[in-house]
Write a protein that binds this DNA or RNA. Structure first.
Length: 295
RNA sequence: GCAGGGAUAGUGAAGUGGUUAAACACAUCAGACUGUAAAUCUGACGGCUCAGCCUUCGGGGGUUCGAAUCCCUCUCCCUGCA
């Protein structure tokens, strides 16, 4: 039986240094990076998303960056498809694929081979969105759909259930030869990292980037709904000052980091590292996986 | 100095005599998560020897069967007049 080629994943909360670790791994083992991030896929949002710089991208090829416009939608199923293509392509060229990112759903869709149920065209999302929770439940009942184990207090879950005609999703085992490296930082330290990173973003012209994007695409634009962007709205309207924006961005980032951590912590296959990462341990871990593959 | 206003849990803020350990929001802690995921949703959130008990609404005193809510007084803060 033919063995699957190795895949290295670097996951974890935002601002833990995933990108730089991935870069180092890629340079050490002749790899290419696949970004599993729901925001860096958008073009034109660069500073606030902490997108890898052109300099970093010239060092190592990055995939799934800048693939859609700021006002275009994206989704996990699409990510899974594109990421799988990228992985196959990288392996075919004899290089090591390294998937890095903090969007847990995107990562899992690839490494656990999620079976996304097709979107039913009979119902428009806009129409369903307008319904209340009880109305959605009634509709589901009328359609004869099984609620299963979904959270019936979460409107989005109910809408999805209707859209998929109640199709039950499936999840596979962890992809063979896949190494999961998780980065974790303690709360206090994380807050410092987040703050420092934001101040660096501000120094490199975040405000200007947001202003230009909001003028060109308007505040309803997808990419401007992200952290680091949406918080400027009141500022440009004149009701808040720069420091309030800064505090709001820090807070939103910390809140996100908490949710990301909850997602990844339940995955018992992840090898966790505290930062700063002990490089030799990483080398040891990766070497084991790669050697195992050769034999 | 005089006249008003105010002090409520980590923060903001409701409550103005009786299911009030005290709405709500935020923060915090924990959790869920398969075509929006940087999204969406859930629980806990005064203390304890925790299906019961104890202590809270600036401090002290009082009225009342009963007060964060009424009265007196003290402290501090804001506003108008001096």
């Amino acid at each position: 039986m033919k063995k699957q080629a190795p895949l290295i994943c670097v996951v974890g909360q935002t601002a833990t240094g995933k990108s730089s670790l991935a870069l180092r791994i890629a340079q050490e083992w002749n790899g290419e990076i696949i970004c599993a991030d729901s925001w860096t896929i958008h073009r034109e949002v660069n500073i606030g998303t902490a997108k890898p710089s052109m300099q970093e991208q010239s060092l190592v090829p990055h995939h799934l960056l800048d693939i859609i416009g700021p006002d275009e939608d994206f989704n996990a199923a699409l990510f899974k498809e594109l990421a799988n293509k990228a992985i196959i392509d990288i392996i075919a060229r004899g290089k090591l694929p390294i998937m890095v990112g903090g969007t847990g759903l995107y990562i899992d869709s690839v490494i656990y081979d999620y079976s996304f149920s097709a979107v039913g065209s009979r119902h428009s999302r806009e129409e369903l969105n307008a319904l209340t929770l009880p109305e959605l439940l009634e509709k589901i009942d009328n359609l004869g759909l099984e609620l299963g184990s979904i959270d019936i207090r979460n409107k989005r879950r109910l809408i999805r259930l209707i859209e998929t005609d109640g199709a039950q999703p499936t999840k596979g085992d962890l992809r063979d030869q896949t190494l999961l490296i998780g980065l974790h930082v303690e709360n206090d330290k994380l807050k410092r990292h987040v703050t420092d990173r934001l101040d660096a973003m501000l120094a490199s012209g975040l405000e200007n980037e947001v202003r230009q994007l909001s003028e060109r695409y308007g505040w309803n634009c997808e990419a401007l709904k992200g952290i680091g962007y949406i918080q400027w709205r009141e500022y440009f309207l004149g009701s808040e000052n720069r420091d309030q924006v800064r505090q709001k961005i820090i807070q939103a980032t910390i809140n996100l980091a908490k949710r990301q951590n909850t997602w990844f912590q339940r995955n018992k296959s992840i090898h966790w590292f505290d930062t700063p990462v002990n490089w030799y341990e990483v080398v040891g871990l990766i070497t084991t996986v790669l050697d195992n593959n050769i034999s």
